[in-house]
Design a protein around this nucleic acid. Structure first.
Length: 482
RNA sequence: GCCGCCUUAGCUCAGUUGGUUAGAGCGCCGGAUUGUGGAUCCGGAGGUCCCCUGUUCAAACCAGGGAGGCGGUACCA
């Protein structure tokens, strides 16, 4: 029978691409969010929260030919048979919110929001199916000064997060410029729509594969490490040279986008942001779906290593752009908007691996041990914990099985507690308590070889009057500060 | 999706020209030690050898299929 039961036990496992988050990660995330929020608030943005689910058509992910949401999103049908999906970014839900409340919203509308988004796709190193984004957007802002502001705010945010100047770069481009290049290469018109997509994707791969890689992708194709072939855009040599020349110089004649970029550059330079922080970069492409003008992204310039010590390609940690058509989908009126999104989870990985995120500020608690198990004694131990807490000292009563005292100290040791408080019958009779410095004790343990000696030593332990509890604990804690 | 590699104890892994009861280290639990963490010593628990089918007297090992994991690539709002 027992065997049979075993077969029906569920396997404890996570859905692929999802992770549990540890105490350290949560605290680090909270800290990052607080830093980002501080910058956004300072710039005059207000918070907004939208739900994790939206009706699928509001996200704009319906296949034209099937009554079924597109791949890439997690979807289900509500009890009225309507398709709902988990949001895959924070921009589409914002557009829905603005369209829905357009009469009550004072434009320009400046908002920010943090939240988890979900993507139903193959996870990769550092890429998950649930991750956090932190967005800022200005809705109803037709001029590129709003885009320039976004770039500057991105830079400020990086510095607020502790990333030093020179360790990040905000790169800016313009969709209109890219379209101009494609036109100049003879790729205008509906016939070449597919090719245009391929070309843009190829340009986007510059930082990953370099100029030669981009050339291959623009032409016949490229082979990856496993030997798999990526089909190329199939341009001829003249067209490839034309595109590569643009990527290298950023030149396109008489293009509206070029003028916009010049304005952005002028604005940010006037505000004191040099090319070491914000620069025009012709290889920036961003998402292909809805951007209509300036696009920008922020990249980290230092090496990030993974657990195995290998340097990893990190890519951009934030990105955004102008999306003038997104609200129009709902209302029919043009509502120009621009905004960007920070990949909080990714950025945290980078900062953590770099040791730039002092993840654990939180000190382990002081442990009050349970020596005598009668109710009178336990109430005394409880009172000690209350006293410590009232003094603002993080502390806990041992809540495991108290019959083995050694286990309690072992628990304190594993938890990293600095102090254990011990009061047995002897101490109680004398009106004393034992305060044990576990960190000092661990150092002493290294000097001791025999078990007996170690047990006898009662390492780094002092006996003090009961009413010295708080002051003595505080002394020991401060000894280990910093 | 496509390409490659991988899957044996909680973890990291060994294992075999196909041959009895499948191993190690670490971890875990118990004891030496029922009032003191570490080190040491002794003992113990823990396995559908990823799943299915086939070949064979015999499969953890061979063959076919499948699943899962990792990595690359594609897609990425």
């Amino acid at each position: 029978m027992a065997k049979k039961q075993k077969n029906t036990r569920p396997k404890a496992r996570l859905p692929r691409g999802f992770v549990d988050r540890s105490a350290d990660d949560i605290r680090a995330t909270d800290k990052m969010i607080a830093a980002i929020r501080q910058v956004f608030e300072l710039y005059g943005f207000d918070p907004l929260e939208t739900p994790a689910f939206e009706y699928t058509d509001a996200l704009g992910k319906y296949l034209p030919d099937a009554d079924r949401p597109n791949a890439g999103v997690f979807s289900l049908t509500d009890d009225d048979d309507q398709w709902m999906s988990l949001r895959y970014d924070l921009t589409a839900p914002l557009a829905r919110h603005v369209a829905q409340n357009i009469n009550d919203i004072q434009l320009p509308h400046r908002t920010y929001r943090a939240g988890y988004v979900f993507r139903n796709e193959k996870p990769g190193p550092g890429r998950f199916r649930q991750f956090m984004q932190f967005d800022a957007d200005t809705i109803g802002a037709p001029n590129v000064s709003a885009d320039a502001e976004m770039c500057m705010m991105m830079a400020d945010t990086m510095e607020q997060l502790g990333i030093e100047r020179g360790d990040y770069i905000v790169r800016v481009n313009n969709r209109k410029v890219l379209e101009g290049v494609l036109e100049a290469a003879g790729l205008a018109g509906d016939d070449h729509a597919g090719t245009r997509l391929s070309v843009l994707r190829s340009i986007d791969k510059l930082d990953k594969f370099g100029i030669d890689g981009v050339r291959q992708l623009l032409g016949a194709g490229r082979k990856d490490e496993s030997g798999d072939v990526t089909e190329g855009a199939g341009l001829d040599k003249g067209q490839i040279d034309q595109v590569i020349a643009y990527v290298e110089t950023g030149d396109v004649d008489g293009n509206e986008g070029v003028a916009e970029l010049a304005t952005i550059e002028q604005l940010v330079r006037a505000a004191g942001y040099g090319a070491d922080r914000i620069k025009i970069d012709p290889s920036v492409v961003r998402g292909l779906e809805y951007y209509t003008g300036p696009v920008y992204e922020c990249e980290l310039l230092f090496d990030v290593t993974n657990e195995k010590g290998e340097t990893v390609q990190f890519g951009s940690v934030a990105g955004g752009g102008r999306y003038d058509g997104l609200v129009k989908r709902f209302t029919g009126q043009q509502v120009p908007a621009t905004g960007f999104s920070i990949g909080v989870s990714r950025l945290m990985t980078a900062l953590k691996n770099l040791g730039r995120l002092d993840a654990s500020h939180v000190k382990p608690p002081v442990l009050v041990c349970v020596m005598d198990r009668d109710i009178q004694s336990v109430t005394r131990y409880q009172a000690m914990v209350q006293e410590l807490r009232a003094a603002g000292i993080r502390s806990e009563l041992f809540q495991g099985n108290p019959k083995d005292f050694g286990k309690q100290l072992k628990y304190a040791d594993r938890r990293g507690c600095a102090v254990a408080v011990i009061e047995g019958a002897d101490e109680h009779a004398a009106g004393e308590i034992q305060i044990k410095d576990l960190i000092e004790g661990a150092k002493m343990a290294a000097q001791i070889e025999s078990r007996e000696e170690w047990t006898e030593a009662r390492a780094a332990q002092v006996s003090v009057p009961r009413d010295h509890l708080v002051t003595t604990v505080r002394d020991v804690l401060s000894r280990h500060e910093g």
